[in-house]
Design a protein around this nucleic acid. Sequence first.
DNA 1: GCACTGTTTGACTGGTCAATCAATAAATCT
DNA 2: AGATTTATTGATTGACCAGTCAAACAGTGC
Lengths: 190, 190
Amino acid sequence: MTAQPERKAQLIDATIQELGATGSLSVTVGQIAKRAGVSSALAFHYFGDKDRLFLAAMRHILAVYGAEVRAALKEAGSPRERLDGTIRASFSKTSFRHDVIAAWLNFYVLAHRSDEARRLLGVYHRRLHANLVHDLRPLAGSRAPEIARRLAALIDGLYLRFVHFPRDEAEDSASAHVLAALDAELKALP
Amino acid sequence: MTAQPERKAQLIDATIQELGATGSLSVTVGQIAKRAGVSSALAFHYFGDKDRLFLAAMRHILAVYGAEVRAALKEAGSPRERLDGTIRASFSKTSFRHDVIAAWLNFYVLAHRSDEARRLLGVYHRRLHANLVHDLRPLAGSRAPEIARRLAALIDGLYLRFVHFPRDEAEDSASAHVLAALDAELKALP
DNA sequence: GCACTGTTTGACTGGTCAATCAATAAATCT
DNA sequence: AGATTTATTGATTGACCAGTCAAACAGTGC
């Protein structure tokens, strides 16, 4: 999946950057190609059309995010530490890079009309859910899936809010909110 | 604000519908005008440019949402009932109309680069927050604002998820999740 | 019946853009 | 070395679109 020609990677990077610069999917393939230092025809040669170029960029972002989560989990021991890692990875510096933000926002829009984009979004959802459930199970037993669903939605919702109204301590503040919700859920367990 | 010619309202409706039909902000003023049964020049005459037309549409959606919240609150007595009303209004049938969904998703994108859109989004945030805090206060005292922040983010996050992966019982299921989170927060109070 | 004001349009412009294509260069194979 | 595939581009096309403008139209007051 990542053994492609150099140019493909350049174009994907340029897509993300250009998306961040203009903020909408109406970026032109020409602008992207220019930033990548190649002709626009090459972008079409490799990706077929604009949508597939953008989807490739989104897959790349999700791959990077997945790697960050895995890295965070590797250093965690207890379920509680692992949950903390999963949550913090969702609010990592990378996630708050303004080009990554723009990609995510436009991805949500695209997922509403493109089947492939929705499928990709589903992959992200399931991965996050599975991670949360795995480490909630020892703490919450059969209530784990239900609580995981709420924590996942809370993560997305907080992300959206910090994206539009950023603060310096977004990373910590957002994580703290999710952990507080987790504690409340656990404390309230029967 | 709404004592303007009928045509303005028609154009706003058409904007929302066309946005729902194509799913992205790249709808053309021509398409919108055609759906409204007028010439595109008229849209420019009334709204100046495309962005302002879209913002007017979004203001309309927020106004309808606000009215739904107010209606739900009118029938509620206890703080708990009022919270339930606020939450259910956020997941009303209207909010899940597919053209309203498309408008919200694109609104999030726009809010990332347009000051006026972000300002509008801030209005929505503050209104929701204020409503939640008002009715949480008797139940959670000084912790009300903090909990309200989480519930608001949870509402947005759940909305996003049900929007992309709809279920028949979305309305009830989403509300139930928020209420469950509320109960957990209250039960966990010191 | 005239002046005035707001409404509405058709025609136009200047520009943009996704996608294609024919052609060249470079690499790989046989 | 000749054949075949892959990488890459410049030029082009055909459609489309935001925004402008001058003019036609309709109502209102006088």
